[in-house]
Design a protein around this nucleic acid. Structure first.
Lengths: 356, 356
DNA sequence: AATTAGCACTCTAGGTAATAGAGTGCTAAT
DNA sequence: ATTAGCACTCTATTACCTAGAGTGCTAATT
């Protein structure tokens, strides 16, 4: 009587299993499937379908006499084709927006706040990877004298990142000299990516070669030390303890491994920086991750950008059995929100010369 | 035949029990005590002593037929009276010293590195609480114009902390004006604690009242925004996952609670800031902590200072069953090391006028 | 040819029982 | 005051049982 084609029904069953499993965490049996979803077929039929789905790799058995559980492939298909995207509730959106209003500070603190909120709203672990300053463009560069032999360099990037670095110098510079170096630099520095800045400064220095050797010397130091930002971006990570609340992670060894990765943020940074290239919200499910300690997890991540440059990544880490539809919506929302936030100061900047 | 007085022998037994328990984690029985320590008494005698120690509250039974385990009171007595302080091995000291050499950067990164090393060497969780900038004295203050309506204030404190804050202003200031404000401030600002700076600037401003109103306005903003450093110090915390490797924390609920506290650094900050007043290395054992989630832990902490001002705290968090003697030595060593590091730049500063 | 009823089979989770071993506490002897 | 001796208690491990959940297969049904 049902007009559903075989393939369609298969998908429906798969969808029911995954959905149910995500909610309950218990393997799903044939009877349950029928009960909850008024399918007009017998358990036996469902069992056949389940067996087929298992043969094709979308489901497994923990053991002979238990219900089905999704495999990574199953989740993947669900995320790609079966799941329908949710929207955040208005209440949630308001809550986020409100928190953002009060947080009109430096970029770093916005990012930190964002990772906290991601964690809070998802009940998983939230993270934000700030841009490696190297990728970003330079907006201001300030040199401040600390002692006889140390200068503080403060970099402000286009996106609003602020980084500082202490340089050691071997010849004294008085503050007047410093001011003119500073002025010289700021004339030459604007809008260049931090990466290219060393080369660029030297090039421009050629043209102004009538300057004193001392300056050149300082500049060299500057390039060597201040812009040798080996760092990858900062990783803000919040709500790690949420992992422990997940019944999926009852196994001690698994949890320990996950925490080891989270603890050493470096690994995660690398993993995420790979993703920074890609546009849009992505889901990494279980073994799809390059990092084997996270094979029991899924990661939902997106990127953010200012104008055309992709700057960083953000997202959540949780168990494979997560509410993907909701999480994707959440991460997506934050990604867009940050994009909006980042494009705001740029506008004000352009207004400046006119006003003056 | 043994000339040991009763009390002395009791202490010896207590010491053996705790020592052994710290090493093995297994309850200690009467036979074990004799075996390992060539005491010339019978098991029965030892049992009597154990019973007495238990009556007095230094030991307990997990259950009737198991050996003894120290109570918090037992550990406390051990730490205060029984334990003999260890020294770090030369190898360890060298390893630390070497790591420090390469890390000659800003204070924050030194602190972060320190917490990492504390964690690595202890195999527990290491932390460093940086000074609340409010406590520290101001060394330099730099204002950098970002946009038409935003100024970046960079604070450098005496100890080497660097903090920045973005201020929003409602009237335009051109860079020349900013430079003179800056100069004015730096003349007045040196050596004052960040806490008192608001009042102080206003006071001095009175004296120079022949300045423009605009300046006063900016100053006000400055005081309101840049020095409203509500923050407590930063807390660097590393090696949280080490907690999971401790067999003592096999209980899931306990661990979850501990992690919740660690995750929300705020609670820990408060706990530690209380301790900042006190001098020297302190041990907090189990229920001695004000924070009930940490009742299964012990904390070894010390403070560090520059000159006479205590600035921050550092230490480790581990299970109650920890090698106190070693841990105390470790924390102590780092405390002294940081003290030394902090007093170094001050010296160089004094050398300056002479050299010139 | 797809669906279904029926049934044997498998595996888990939970409970009970039995046993060995560790360590105590007490009593009476030294 | 110390100790030998012994009964006692509790744990940890193993083995075994049972109920229940859910499957997979075969043969009957539509």
């Amino acid at each position: 009587m049902s007009r559903i084609s075989l393939e369609e029904r298969k998908q429906k069953v798969l969808q029911i299993v995954i959905h149910h499993y995500i909610r309950t965490g218990k393997p799903v049996g044939s009877e349950t499937i029928i009960e909850k979803n008024k399918l007009e077929v017998s358990p036996a039929t469902v069992r056949n379908i389940l067996a087929a789905l298992e043969r094709e790799g979308y489901l497994t058995h923990p053991h002979t006499s238990s219900g089905r559980v999704p495999t990574d492939k199953g989740y993947r298909f669900y995320v790609d084709s079966l799941m329908q995207l949710q929207q955040l509730t208005q209440e949630e959106e308001q809550r986020i927006e409100k928190e953002y209003e009060s947080q009109r500070g430096a970029l770093d603190s916005v990012m930190q706040e964002t990772s906290k909120m991601l964690s809070m709203l998802s009940h998983y672990t939230g993270f934000v990877l700030t841009p490696s300053p190297a990728v970003d463009h330079l907006k201001r560069l300030e040199l401040v004298k600390l002692d006889r032999d140390r200068i503080l360099a403060v970099l402000v990037t286009d996106a609003g990142l602020i980084r500082h670095k202490i340089m050691e110098i071997d010849q004294d510079v008085n503050s007047t000299e410093l001011v003119s170096i500073n002025r010289l630099l700021n004339k030459n520095v604007y809008g260049i990516s931090v990466n290219d800045i060393g080369a660029e400064i030297f090039k421009r220095l050629q043209q102004e070669k009538n300057k004193q050797i001392k300056y050149v010397n300082i500049m060299e130091k500057l390039v060597q030390q201040a812009f040798a930002l080996d760092e990858e971006g900062e990783l803000y990570l919040e709500g790690a303890s949420n992992i422990l609340s997940q019944p999926d992670f009852a196994d001690y060894d698994k949890v320990r491994n996950i925490f080891k990765v989270i603890d050493e943020k470096k690994m995660l940074c690398e993993l995420l920086e790979e993703k920074v290239g890609h546009e849009g919200t992505k889901v990494i499910i279980g073994e799809e991750t390059p990092c084997k300690e996270l094979q029991e997890c899924s990661i939902v991540t997106s990127t953010y950008r200012a104008g055309d440059r992709t700057l960083g990544a953000l997202g959540i880490i949780g168990p494979k059995r997560m509410e993907y539809s909701k999480m994707i919506a959440l991460v997506d929302y934050f990604s867009k929100l940050i994009n909006k936030t980042l494009s705001r100061p740029a506008k004000e900047l352009k207004r400046e010369p006119r006003k003056k």
